[in-house]
Design a protein around this nucleic acid. Sequence first.
DNA 1: CTGTTAGCGCGTTCAT
DNA 2: ATGAACGCGCTAACAG
Lengths: 343, 343
Amino acid sequence: MAVQSVPTIKEMARQLNLSSSTVSRALNGNQSIGLRTKMRVKQLADQLSYAPNLNAISLKQKKTFIIGVIVPNLREHFFSEAVCAIEDLALQNKYHVLINQSQDDPERERQIVESMKSLRVDGIIASLSKNTQSCDHFLALRNYNIPVVYFDRVPNRQDVHKVVFNMHGGTKDAIEHLYNRGHRRIAILNGPESMASSIERTNAYKQVMIKKRIKIDMSLVVSTDLTQAGTFEAMDNLMAQHPRPTAVVTMNDYVALDVIEYAKNTKLKINKDLCVISYANLPIINYLQTPPVASVEQYPWQQGAKAAGIMMDLIKNNDSDEPLVFQHVIIDGKLMVHEKKKR
Amino acid sequence: MAVQSVPTIKEMARQLNLSSSTVSRALNGNQSIGLRTKMRVKQLADQLSYAPNLNAISLKQKKTFIIGVIVPNLREHFFSEAVCAIEDLALQNKYHVLINQSQDDPERERQIVESMKSLRVDGIIASLSKNTQSCDHFLALRNYNIPVVYFDRVPNRQDVHKVVFNMHGGTKDAIEHLYNRGHRRIAILNGPESMASSIERTNAYKQVMIKKRIKIDMSLVVSTDLTQAGTFEAMDNLMAQHPRPTAVVTMNDYVALDVIEYAKNTKLKINKDLCVISYANLPIINYLQTPPVASVEQYPWQQGAKAAGIMMDLIKNNDSDEPLVFQHVIIDGKLMVHEKKKR
DNA sequence: CTGTTAGCGCGTTCAT
DNA sequence: ATGAACGCGCTAACAG
């Protein structure tokens, strides 16, 4: 058998003795094509399982119908959930989705942005890597009119579109919940200090403490690298204090798991000796013997969906002359109390 | 400010009073370009943060440098891990990765394949959706010379490249481990009957039973839809038997979690009244009060890496005339026993 | 109704 | 050392 050349419009035109534009029109449902011709073309296309070459179409239309998505990683439930939402919405709008993980490496993030620029994606939805300082690589996309919508981990500037979680409100709720349960010495287990979420948690903490007229003790607010070892070390330091904290608010459920593990190892009773509240509300929390007393739900699906929605609007109005307004959306959390199940 | 046109070779040529071919050559490090010109071009490119249009290049070279990846979902640790490996290997080889989730929906899987075909990806790495019966949509890719490598959930045919887990061996190990601990009535909680893994587990089960001269009781081998409700129902039926099973091998860790939850609800002591072994070896297992006694590690990273490796070979030798040999790689599992930690 | 032509951005001859 | 011309697959403007 001779090497089969890949099906193109031109190739089909040759086989059917037509011009390539006729074939093109037939496939695209143009009115002015004879029914008979249309049928012949469609049948052949079917038989060859023809698929139009999007590269060629993109080149001509200056649109790729691809949305790039950059997230730190997909292992975290938060991001895989957000990505699901984005993928769903994009597919509904006939867009393709190009997902890449920065692995929290700024250099890798740069490369990904560069590669998406080369691919001429129609837009990028991104959550910054943990250590990203500058976002020049994202700003350079403006030369190519590629809009960017950030979510969750966003740059600290006004001239961008972003969807953020209301960390201040969530933390306030968490700490007040603990206060209402009688806790006065409450610790915070933050991520790296450079992360915006760490800073906001600390601010919210201070604010509640002031409101409740409790003396602020900054030795109760600690940063970790989010590893288990880091958490154990931080807990060692916290529990060595006098009086020791009776409650701790952790950066996320993964850290909370490590705190619970730490408690197990040191014979502390979770939610009795040490009360835990975290962020995220992972499904597995429900399978734990001693879950945190509560989690601040961050609604990853909604965050992703909102970001994707903004992106769709931006893309669809990209040629209008409306003055560009930067979208800043804030998603409120909700304190989910994990009641002990009874049967 | 006038609307800035996007940087292209042509545009830069205009600004520099050069021809586009000169600019092209300068950017690609062609020897025959004057140093001075080369510098001028590179500087302008830098200033405009020029990025070559991959669509144009793909059109010409008939290569997109994109690898498509199709997985049922990214929520499962197994798949996100495998995807990480693929992404890493691809990036090392200067390939882009296009990840999509079928959400276990065969129709959506079809659409994704179609869209990747249109994008002219250089190859597809796929794990089939739970309910996919026919893989015609994948076979149609041959018209476009797009190679496919399957992993984990693979089609049951010889004329494809695939990386599979040695389910037979893993299950044998699991059941013999249970046998050695004294269990004689061992149940299997399979996924849908159509899944190859379910069938293989059943076969391995029968084989061990025969070898150990235990009468096979097929009422101990049940299928579920993998939901919590399905698992609870299946467990109700199993535990109603006389004598009831003392051990159960579950499809994966997620099902195992539900079995443990079921046990909690019905006051069964895990690994005492009911011994559990599952597949996957999720990180969270280590945080459970009563983890399964063992898990069959399936090495998702290796599976992904192997599939990506095969794909790279296929792509690089795509124009050679070597007779095409279909790669069938089998990854062996390992029974990981979860010892109780002591401190 | 259908064919011809041109051009999207790029790399690659072939000239000069 | 540089420019002109061509073509990848496709659509759209213009012709008939």
